[in-house]
Amino acid sequence: MVANRRTPARSTAAGRTWRQAEPAPVVVISGGEDLLADRAVRRIGTQLRQADPGVTVTTVAAAGYEPGQLSTLTSPSLFGEPRMVVITGLAEGNDAALADVDAYLKNNDPDPDVTVVLVHSGGAKGKKVIQRAVDAGAPSVHVPVIKRDTDRLALVAEEFTDAGRRISTRAAQSLVDAFGSDLRELAASCAQLIADVDGDVDEDDVRRYYGGRAEATGFEVADAVATRDRARAMLALRRALDTGVDPIPLVAAIASRLRLLAKVSAVSGSGAQVAAEIGAAPWMVDKARRELRAWTPAELGEAIIVLAEVDVALKGGVEVAGVVRGASADHTFTLERMVRATTAPRRSAG
């Protein structure tokens, strides 16, 4: 089971985590993970409401900002109620938004009842304004895009920990397999399981709620290809295509799995050591090592090349060595040829 304890949140070199977001006259939230940015904003708002239920919260999109809005929203109030003003999308902000935020930051006497939250997803535009806020002492909350499965698994564990619940490692991995590309859906699936399932959540619970989704994302096909089980891979492929799965993410799921095998094969050490080196869970390394018995290094390399060529062909209609026929052709034929090519009987290593 994933333990119902959490490692205390630690500030990163770039700033605080979303769990450390706190009210201040100006708060900067930077990074491309929208879900975590929203949570940081919500956490600040919750703390302000706990201090004063009468706080008003106003959100303004920087792309549609009108000149003078920030000044109006932060001007002293007749009744002195606390206010929170959130400026979102500063990376896409118009000139008026950036100019008004810059002018506000130069004000040496901000209203103590006002909290201004500046949200910037990254990129050059608006970066100078954000940096000026940080240099002036504004706390910085960093919400980088979550790219690694280990970080997605940690998010799942934290969702259950926050609710005082537990989820097995295999169940958590199944959720990541099904929803990992969409963090909001991943978090929503955790919330549904927490609400609907009594007690600890295991893999059977995930399969009962989201089994069709997990299969349709291509991970069942990837499992079969990784073990070079052609019959199971073909059956899983046809089932996935019958549910209307997009071939491109399906190929990406298989390619990701084979790249994991390549990474594991290139690193020596215990499962835990290899996992730390490549950014995977130890059980995933152990599973990959079992799957590697079905491959020679040359075959694995060739399969990864085939998948890369198929990906390019599906996106651009390029014909590749008779394996695919182009983006406008029958995807079923293309993908079946791909599965046959990657699950051919193992050749002798010698």
Rank of each mutant, 00 (worst) to 15 (best):
V2K: 13
A3C: 12
G15V: 09
R19M: 10
E22W: 07
E22I: 03
P25V: 08
V26S: 03
V27I: 09
D34W: 09
L35G: 07
R39F: 11
R42W: 02
I44K: 03
G45V: 01
T46A: 15
T46G: 04
T46I: 05
P53T: 01
T59I: 13
A63T: 09
Q69L: 11
S71V: 11
S71P: 00
T72E: 03
S75T: 07
E81C: 09
V85M: 08
V85L: 06
I87C: 09
D95S: 10
N107H: 08
P112V: 11
V114W: 07
G122P: 03
G126N: 01
V129T: 12
I130K: 03
I130E: 00
A133K: 02
A133R: 00
V134G: 04
A136R: 15
G137D: 11
H142L: 09
A157P: 11
E158A: 15
A163I: 07
G164Y: 06
A172N: 04
A172Y: 07
Q173N: 09
L175I: 05
L186C: 12
L186G: 09
S189F: 13
A191R: 12
E203D: 08
R207M: 14
Y209H: 15
G211A: 12
V221H: 03
R239I: 07
R239Q: 13
D242V: 09
D242T: 10
G244C: 07
I248F: 10
A252E: 06
A253G: 08
R257C: 03
R257V: 02
R257T: 04
S265R: 06
S265N: 06
A276D: 07
E277P: 01
A280V: 00
M284H: 08
M284N: 09
E291M: 07
L292E: 01
R293V: 04
W295F: 15
A298K: 14
L300I: 02
I305W: 14
V306W: 11
V306C: 11
L307Q: 01
D311P: 13
V312A: 15
A313T: 15
G316L: 11
G317H: 10
G322N: 09
R325S: 14
R325M: 13
A327I: 10
A329E: 06
A329H: 10
A329I: 08
A329M: 11
T334C: 15
A344E: 13
P345D: 07
R346M: 12
